[in-house]
Amino acid sequence: MASTQQPASSGSDGQRYATNDERKRKRMESNRESARRSRKKKQQHLEELMSQLTQLQNQSTIWREKIGSVGRNFHTLDAENNVLRAQLAELTERLDSLNSLTRFWADANGFAVDIPEIPDTLLEPWQLPCPIQPITASADMFQF
């Protein structure tokens, strides 16, 4: 006689499958939630990076404008400096000519005239005989 026997644990097997299904469902739900949080965090990070990019681009534009302004100021000052050098050379030449005429007149008329020579330090101010001292600067000197 062939009898069909069911395992004694068939009721517990069903419960075990239900428990496994419940665990699997909870794990899948947890994974979905974790993935959602991960996507949200990634999106926030991307938005922060985009914000930083915009801020850095704005700063870059500001610095380029400042650099351009400094460059234009440099060229203006360089041109003015060249004009002043040319004027200095012209005035020095005039003074030398006047000194020469004054010496000639003084010699012709018998007068003793003491005409000092133009000191080189006036012609070359970068070679002034003074102690070398550091030049101090502060940030507010360079306001744009």
Rank of each mutant, 00 (worst) to 15 (best):
P134E: 10
L122I: 07
E22R: 15
A35L: 07
N81G: 10
E33G: 08
R72F: 11
S60Y: 12
T4L: 13
N81C: 11
W126M: 03
K42M: 04
I62D: 11
L53E: 13
L49I: 09
P129Q: 03
N20A: 13
N73A: 11
Q5E: 09
W63C: 13
R27S: 13
P119W: 00
T4P: 10
Q43L: 08
E90L: 06
L84A: 15
Q43F: 06
N58G: 14
E29M: 04
Q57I: 04
N73F: 08
K42C: 04
M1C: 03
L49V: 12
V113I: 09
A108N: 12
M1P: 03
S9K: 08
E47N: 10
E47F: 02
R25L: 03
Q52H: 13
Q52G: 13
L128M: 14
P134A: 09
Q57N: 14
F104P: 00
R23F: 13
W126I: 04
R25K: 10
T92I: 03
S9L: 06
I118W: 00
E124Y: 12
F144D: 03
L128T: 12
M1V: 07
D13R: 04
E47K: 14
L101V: 03
G110Y: 02
D114N: 13
N20V: 10
F142C: 02
I67K: 15
R32D: 05
K24E: 08
S38G: 05
L53I: 09
S97T: 02
R72S: 11
D114A: 09
M50R: 15
I132G: 05
Q55H: 15
P131F: 01
L123N: 02
I115V: 15
W126E: 06
L123G: 01
S97L: 03
A112L: 03
Q52V: 08
F74H: 11
G71T: 09
A2Q: 11
D107V: 01
A18V: 08
A112F: 02
Q55I: 08
S97A: 06
K26H: 10
S100I: 00
G14R: 07
R72N: 09
E48R: 15
A89I: 05
H45I: 06
Q127M: 10
E22V: 09
P125V: 00
D120G: 11
Q143Y: 05
E65Y: 10
A112N: 07
Q6G: 07
G71C: 04
A2H: 10
P131D: 05
T4Y: 13
G68T: 13
Q52K: 14
Y17P: 03
